[in-house]
Simulated scan of single mutants.
Amino acid sequence: MMNINIVAGGPGNLIPDLSEYREKDAFWIGVDRGAVTLLDSGIIPDEAFGDFDSITIEQKKAIEKAAPGLHIYQAEKDKTDLDLALSWAVEQRPASIRMFGISGGRADHFLGNLQLLYQALQRNVSAVMIDRQNTISMFSPGSYTVLRDPVKPYVSFLPFTETVNNLSLEGFKYSLNKCHIALGSTLCISNELIRSQGAFSFTEGILIMIRSTD
């Protein structure tokens, strides 16, 4: 199964080195200005989505020439360009979806993009948002393993639903045992692993995990 990497048009200084994600089975999607970012990084987008109203005519022509699959939409539409790209990606049933260039800049765009993680979760597709400082993922009830990351050592958990029930954390500096976390709680902000790996589990709700660095 392939891994799909989606690059949107967020601030370039927040996008990590994309060459680190150029596995043999990687499939690349550029969203609007994100397609230009891919070309500038020496990566040919396999698909490109957007209204492309934020780039120059020359940049648009370069995308049209390079991308095998091009999806052009009107600027006025009911879904964002990233939503359209993610919906297409989910339909491919990939092993995972990684999204870059979707944080920083406008807060409404970022919060809207965060909602898209839930869209993928509902379809049982693993999706994650990645920038230079943060990695954000979303989970349904179950048990999960977390490996220590020296680059992003801080691990925070936030409820996406009204409550997250029976949350347990093992192998963390601050452990929990079947704790109920309500929407608005900051109890699980800025934790750290004390071993090479830890675990978390919960029985109800939807949970956001953020791994970050200062």
Rank of each mutant, 00 (worst) to 15 (best):
R106F: 02
K79S: 14
Q197H: 14
H71V: 03
F160W: 15
R93P: 00
H71S: 10
L193S: 06
T186Q: 10
F200G: 11
I130Y: 02
I72L: 00
N166S: 15
D149S: 14
Y21L: 10
R148K: 15
R211A: 07
G105Q: 08
V146M: 09
T213K: 13
D25E: 14
H109S: 06
N13A: 14
V128Y: 09
E91H: 09
A26H: 12
R106D: 07
K24P: 02
F157A: 11
L169T: 10
L38R: 13
D17E: 10
V7T: 10
N165S: 15
N113V: 11
E47I: 00
P159E: 09
L187M: 15
E91K: 14
L117G: 05
G101M: 01
L147P: 07
S137H: 08
K173F: 09
S168C: 04
I208V: 07
L147V: 11
A85R: 11
P45F: 06
D83S: 15
A199G: 10
E192P: 09
Q133K: 13
Q197P: 01
R98D: 04
R33F: 00
G112N: 08
I130F: 01
I97D: 01
S103M: 13
M209H: 03
I194Q: 14
A199Q: 11
R123F: 07
A95S: 11
Y118F: 04
D81E: 07
Y144S: 06
N3W: 00
L183N: 05
S185E: 10
F172V: 11
T203D: 10
S96N: 06
S140C: 09
G10N: 02
G10R: 04
V36L: 00
V151Y: 12
D17V: 08
A66D: 02
G10C: 06
L193A: 01
A182H: 12
L39T: 08
S54R: 12
T213C: 08
T56P: 02
K77A: 01
G112Q: 08
P159I: 03
D214R: 15
G42R: 15
F202H: 02
L176C: 09
T186P: 00
R98L: 12
L114H: 05
L86C: 12
T203G: 01
G205E: 00
I189Q: 10
D25H: 02
N5E: 07
I29N: 05
F157P: 09
G198M: 08
Y73C: 01
A35S: 14
I57F: 03
S175Q: 14
G10P: 03
V7A: 03
A48H: 07
R93C: 00
E20Y: 15
I57D: 13
G105T: 02
G171A: 10
